[in-house]
Write a protein that binds this DNA or RNA. Structure first.
Lengths: 341, 341
DNA sequence: TATTCGAATGTAAACGTTTTCAAAAATATA
DNA sequence: TATATTTTTGAAAACGTTTACATTCGAATA
């Protein structure tokens, strides 16, 4: 494989000149530039990334740590991030893992070995965040859906709170007073915020908020099914259930069917995310749309800004993504969704 | 950040010795080894990956190119690959893109710039595969779900053909003769193999195989809905539909409901993949289980083998993953699936 | 034509490792 | 104890770039 010296020889110039044209330096005569470009193309030369990284101390690579639970929208997120960062020449290293310690280690090693220029952290489970903060003070990083308050870095969060309020208000508008909430995974930031939106809205209306109206799942359909069963088997049933995500809402619908309850007449159900199944399930699920691809792009752009601004003047920034409620039928609306025809 | 020279100074040895310790070279006296180790830990030193890569010509990184369509199981695949490769110290660079040319470019640049030691290619759409082959002769690579026949490399494929035969046979066992097939994305290898299994089985039984029993989708629920509508609106309807994946099968179920057809009585439906929704949809979907995580691990192991064996003696190898039919209700079986309770 | 000055180019050092080869130290052998 | 052998260590080159600095070139000015 050709290296810069081969190119220099072929073009009859020094390697410095070759380097200059590679890096778009203006101080090269048009004439020689063309000669070099020709040599590069003739020899099918690509600069060695390790040598470049060694010199420039950048790798044009960013790290992305993602948690187990997020799998369903992960590909979309990546695509969003990648679409934004690709055009700047960045690549993405991903790391997933089943246990937190492993994640921490991966992160640290990625950082310390100089493998990445920046990081995107999807760590919805707040717990370990402080372990990271120390390692990250001098690294461009954006946190996604994390409750962390960081100086020196950017956080991108969904407007879970407002959207949860909106969708709860909608249920109340339908006349519901006994509205139950199914939590997602323990300590999950998104789930907690959605819960806060729900609770505050209930309180604003002086409606009951109690443990009997809450149940704890872990974002899976199965857990939603189980949680819903608990809620629905009480002597006094809720008339509506707000699940912290769509998968659990779908589990809830399944549970209601098992108990021969009509949706939305006997029990209304709403979710969060707008996964693709939401519109196909019967009845179509009223939920909150999370624009995953777009979130990815925003995260990508935000990281790129930090990368180019340099670590010295990173601005603490919190980007809040607004969310919209998607009215379908499971809440009681009769709006006919003509999705296909 | 400390470098190898700092460590050497602190330990009172030469950088060569430090390097030996780092790389587990045996020819270091236990005594000095401990001193060096102490210095490394005191200074919190991690070898610079670019310098290592420049010298050793390996990066401990592998590239993973994935197509748009595969998004739903992508996170699981990554997790599988990563779980296998992580323990060998490898990282994963991912690249997705919306158009094929972009993919090719990414691939080539990843390879040529020395950023990756090997590649995993998920390129279910056969088309462009030959473009790659040339660039890849000297690179460890494993193809996933690709129809390509390569010397010098490994291919991991699902046993689509056999599983499609099995599930078609099952429909026939239920008494169906007019069985329709909904294709996935054009030129998609998995879809084509599934079709072949279907067609051969039909022919074996001397059942009709014709264009009126085929429709073309693109793996999405919406396309399944549309394709099913076409099939079901014919004067003579099929009595069963085999969709090339679950998403389209779910679209098919939706379509049948729209037309007030009972499943499985008026029309049986089967899919492929076993996505999580398959068991929740009503009726629960009979399908073929694709063990995605396991596939990821197999792919990871296979690439690792190539990586360690060195490129000289790579064995052409084709790994076929056996698949099992999952009987639920949409085929007409009355087996009661007690998934939760 | 000689002089000055800016632009274009080249030389060589630097980035942080690994590794070859030689030297030194430790150990075994006589 | 002297010598041969093996093990451990160090010096220096190499990997392929970028870049500070020095040099050369060409054009513009006098």
């Amino acid at each position: 494989m050709a290296n810069i010296t081969d190119v220099a020889k072929k073009a009859g110039v020094s390697i410095a000149t070759v380097s200059r044209v590679i890096n778009g330096n203006t101080n090269v005569r048009e004439n020689t530039k063309q000669t070099v470009l020709k040599a590069i193309s003739d020899l099918n030369f690509t600069p060695n990334i390790n040598a470049q990284g060694l010199q420039k101390k950048i790798t044009k690579t960013i790290g992305l740590i993602f948690p187990d639970a997020s799998s369903y929208y992960f590909a979309e997120i990546i695509r969003g991030i990648s679409s934004r960062l690709r055009k700047e020449g960045y690549h993405i290293i991903v790391a997933s893992s089943h246990d937190e310690e492993d994640e921490v280690n991966t992160l640290i090693s990625l950082l310390k070995s100089g493998r990445v220029d920046g990081m995107i952290l999807m760590m919805p489970s707040i717990q370990n965040v402080n372990v990271f903060k120390d390692s990250l003070v001098h690294t461009p990083v954006v946190y996604l859906s994390t409750g962390i308050n960081t100086s020196q870095s950017t956080t991108v969060v969904l407007d879970n709170y407002q959207a949860a309020k909106d969708i709860t208000e909608h249920l109340i508008w339908h006349g519901h007073k006994r509205i139950a909430f199914i939590h997602g995974a323990p300590r999950n930031f998104d789930s907690m915020e959605r819960y806060n939106g729900y609770v505050d809205t209930m309180k604003n209306h002086n409606f009951e908020v109690s443990k009997t109206l809450e149940s704890h799942g872990n974002f899976t359909e199965a857990s939603g099914f189980k949680s819903a069963m608990e809620l629905l088997n009480q002597k006094v049933r809720p008339t509506a259930i707000f699940a912290a995500n769509d998968a659990m809402a779908i589990g809830t619908i399944e549970a209601a069917k098992r108990l021969s309850l009509k949706i939305p007449d006997n029990i209304a159900v709403v979710g969060f995310d707008d996964i693709s199944t939401a519109q196909y399930i019967d009845p179509a699920l009223t939920t909150v749309k999370v624009p995953v691809y777009k979130v990815g792009q925003i995260v990508g752009r935000s990281l790129f800004n930090q990368l180019t601004d340099g670590k010295k003047n990173i601005i603490e920034e919190k980007i809040v993504i607004p969310l919209k409620v998607l009215i379908r039928k499971s809440c009681g609306c009769s709006y006919e969704d003509d999705k296909f025809l």
